[in-house]
């Protein structure tokens, strides 16, 4: 019996050491990517190519989800607010929830599962089929040539995608409440405009989405580069990308929100 207790404690210790070690490897890799970003920024064509895969191909899911999230927000907000006779405040509700939280967070979650997983799978497969090793043997650094452009493409597209998500959401809310239900159009926009502040709401939302972009893409490229070069290895890494980035997004969101809105009681 004591043996089993000792071994389970050992197990915990082993896991902690393992994850701390992995975190260290990941941070070192992240710094390496930043240091070797020169090539991809000088040859911006490499980044443009990846922007197509991470940004343009994520557009549809972002637009559709944003529209629906906004419509649901409008519907639910109206249902609740009309009980208190302040259904004209529905614009405020939709816009504030989107700009502050849902836009950056949901767009980042979608981005992680759409683009993050694709980045991991692509880099993992390139590793498994020895393409990265071949590149290294051709005296081309795979971190500079393969990883860094994908990283920067992700970092650039995330804020745009979050903004598009929020705009689509505000439009979806407008569609449901103003066009279908018949809330006064003027009060929808004016209430929204008087409540949403540029610096506190929109700028902070923008900053949040930048953080999320860095986090998700960094996780995605690391998992891909670190994946065991087998079929299971790559599929496991892809799953880990989605799970880890989702958790990191939500955790980071809490921390950032606590910092940004601390001054607001």
């Amino acid at each position: 019996m004591p043996n089993r207790i000792v071994s389970s404690i050992q197990n915990i210790g082993h896991r902690v050491i393992e994850s701390v070690w992995r975190l260290g490897v990941a941070s070192r890799f992240f710094i390496l990517v930043l240091l070797k970003s020169g090539t991809s920024l000088r040859r911006f064509n490499l980044v443009i190519r990846e922007l197509y895969f991470t940004g343009v191909l994520s557009l549809i899911i972002i637009v559709v989800s944003g529209l629906f999230v906004g419509m649901v927000l409008g519907l639910q907000g109206y249902e609740t607010l009309q009980k208190y006779g302040s259904e004209s405040a529905v614009g405020t509700l939709v816009a504030l929830s989107l700009v502050r939280e849902l836009g950056p967070v949901v767009a980042a979650l979608l981005f992680a599962s759409r683009a993050g997983s694709a980045i991991t799978a692509e880099i993992g497969l390139m590793k498994a089929t020895e393409q990265l090793a071949a590149m290294g043997m051709m005296a081309v650094d795979p971190i500079a040539r393969v990883v860094a452009p994908r990283f920067w493409a992700g970092v650039i597209s995330m804020p745009f995608l979050a903004a598009i998500f929020s705009v689509m959401g505000v439009f979806g809310g407008y569609l449901v409440t103003v066009v279908f239900i018949g809330v006064d159009e003027g009060s929808y926009w004016s209430q929204m405009q008087s409540a949403v502040d540029f610096r506190f709401d929109i700028l902070n939302g923008f900053i949040k989405s930048c953080f999320f972009g860095v986090a998700v893409t960094a996780i995605a490229v690391f998992e891909g580069y670190d994946a065991p070069p087998t079929a299971e290895g790559v599929s496991g890494a892809t799953t880990r990308t989605v799970v880890t980035s989702s958790l990191v997004i939500l955790g980071l969101d809490f921390i950032l929100t606590a910092f940004m809105f601390r001054g607001v009681s």
Partner: peptide, 9 residues
């Protein structure tokens, strides 16, 4: 030359 060529796909 890698085992299966390792061409950039």
């Amino acid at each position: 030359l890698f085992q299966f060529g390792a061409l950039f796909t």
